[in-house]
Write a protein that binds this DNA or RNA. Structure first.
Lengths: 332, 332
DNA sequence: AAAGAAAATGGCAGCGCTGCCATTATTGGC
DNA sequence: GCCAATAATGGCAGCGCTGCCATTTTCTTT
């Protein structure tokens, strides 16, 4: 079933065609070591003529140095991860690194299996979401000797490199903002927290902050499955059915919050006078709604960029806090 | 700058530790060829004990068979491509294939450079968006001997495999739908068409259909840059400033259409009685707005799945039309 | 012009696996 | 029990490159 490549041109053939040694071709192509201009031209001409494409597999094996960077991400549906990939891939491409990825569906067991599969490619670095990994994953990563980058979460202990911001702080500041605005009967609509541990951290810090200000969370509605606009809408509908007199609702992210917002629009619930809405992520779409969404803008693309930069420069272990920005908006 | 791996356990060491030959270890690990249960246990014990992780780089080189699949995609911001990747990666992971990707930013020159870089990894297949590639890209891909999959566009000639649907048909049916609903003064709001050639194909088929029914496009507003909700909002605002009596607007995609929708909400423009809105893509969010968006739902995830399936089964060259679904919605 | 330094270049042993072939242990049939 | 199958297994030559070292060529310098 696997695909076999047709006989391709090898470096040795280029060397022969150019009338030089193999190492010379290798030096010219990598622009490394010394060679004369004349030789370079002959080699490049042969490369062109034969349509030679270097074999990175062989090169990587021979040099035992890798320019692969592996991403093990929970999801591609949650815009967060494509954004991180986008930032990272731009930097990696500039530096002639290659990104490989696989998707865990927020399943730690799958994460372990996929991380193992990735390590088989001997990547220069493995990038993962957050700090929650199985013991097996951690052991494996540690033993691999490759760089480990944990993304989008700083509430925990880094294995090696970590880039992102504190979800707990985000949750706390969201609560503080709502309290400052005078809301006291605050509810929560969220998605599966066991899987999305970062949303869980925001939520628990949010609740603690409310509690510390004598305005404990009034009610919550947690929906199974991934976050979505429809789940946000549905969640708010259910929550309001139980507690019609809430004055603010915190959503697990902007997708959910937009669902809540649409629900209010459809039911004629005045925002924010009758009900305030607060999200998380700072999606662009939240800037274009009739009332801009009150939310927290997270540095998703920058997280990818910085993470990639640290890897290509082989920086020492460190934690980089990129912070976030609270957007007041008009819904809270 | 490149990363060097620390001395890792090799297959030979496992063989020694298990007291068997190298080929036996290889057979056991790949579950290929024959070996006794006793031997398998000894090998697996040694693997476990030493923490051996097979080196796929070496394996791929030795077998000259690859389980890498390369994606060269225009963007990660446009949800279309993460969706395709999502579908594909699920199937690839099941079959122990590995996805690698890079992002062209809709730049054909960059596509060529990145395709060349990908071929250096000797992938089993290269997946690209659409049919518009430079001559150099085509020549290179053809010469590589690896499978080529062109995605999300069937209006042209396939190099090898093609999976998706016809954008021209989508444009035509969108126009037909609006005409059938009785709209006659129809405008268009779109993003950069030179780069997103698939949006361009939809638009031209849309216009042709209108023309064929004596209701030529009334006006258009094309915004530079990528599609976004904000650009859709802005585009509609500008269009209506010029032509306040339009009765319907076709948007280049749902992001843009949602921007238009929000603009109407904000300005109190009644939908669809005063102005109809039609999008493209069938995003989930369009189902949760107070009025569901009228649009075309495209099989993005399925496109990825089918493409991956064709590759892992090494299917003969073919074109697979997955079609699309027109969603009537409530905005047109 | 000779000597020494620097620049160019070629040769070849691996990198860690897989595929092929040869060899050895088992098994079943009569 | 003897022989032919069949199952298990080991050995080793590559896969296509890079890194190191030896060698040759070219340049400086006095």
């Amino acid at each position: 079933m696997e695909f076999k490549h047709q006989a391709t041109v090898t470096l040795a053939e280029v060397a022969e065609a150019a009338g030089v040694g193999e190492s010379t071709v290798s030096r010219v192509l990598r622009n490394h070591g010394s060679f004369s201009g004349k030789t370079r031209d002959r080699v490049m001409a042969a490369v062109e003529r034969l349509g030679y494409v270097p074999n990175r597999i062989a090169g990587t094996l021979a040099s035992t140095a890798s320019r692969l960077v592996a991403f093990v991400i929970p999801s591609l549906s949650n815009i967060v991860f494509p954004d991180v990939l986008r930032g990272a891939s731009a930097v990696l491409e500039e530096n002639r690194y290659q990104a490989v990825f696989s998707v865990t569906d927020y399943d730690p067991g799958k994460e372990e299996a996929l991380a193992a599969a990735m390590l088989a490619w001997r990547p220069a670095a493995v990038m993962l979401a957050g700090y929650e990994h199985t013991e097996g994953t951690v052991k494996m990563l540690r033993a691999s000797g490759c760089r480990i980058v944990e993304l989008l979460d700083l509430d925990g202990d880094a294995l090696d490199l970590a880039v992102g911001f504190s979800n707990r702080t985000a949750g706390r500041e969201s609560a503080a903002f709502l309290l400052k605005r005078g809301y006291r009967r605050i509810g929560y609509v969220g998605h599966d927290l066991d899987r999305d541990t970062r949303a869980g951290k925001r939520f628990s810090a949010f609740c603690e902050t409310l509690g510390a200000h004598d305005a404990p969370l009034a009610d919550r509605e947690i929906l199974a499955g991934a976050s979505s606009v429809e789940n946000g809408r549905l969640g708010l509908e259910r929550l309001l059915a139980r507690m019609p007199d809430l004055d603010a609702v915190y959503f697990s992210n902007d997708d959910m919050a937009l669902g809540g917002y649409f629900h209010c629009l459809a039911r004629g619930i005045a925002i924010p006078s009758q009900l305030a809405i607060f999200g998380y992520n700072g999606l662009d779409i939240g800037r274009a709604t009739p009332q801009p969404l009150s939310t927290i803008r997270t540095p998703r693309v920058a997280t990818g960029q910085v993470a990639a930069q640290l890897v290509v420069t082989n920086s020492p272990p460190q934690v980089v806090d990129l912070g976030f920005e609270l957007i007041e908006g008009a819904t809270a």
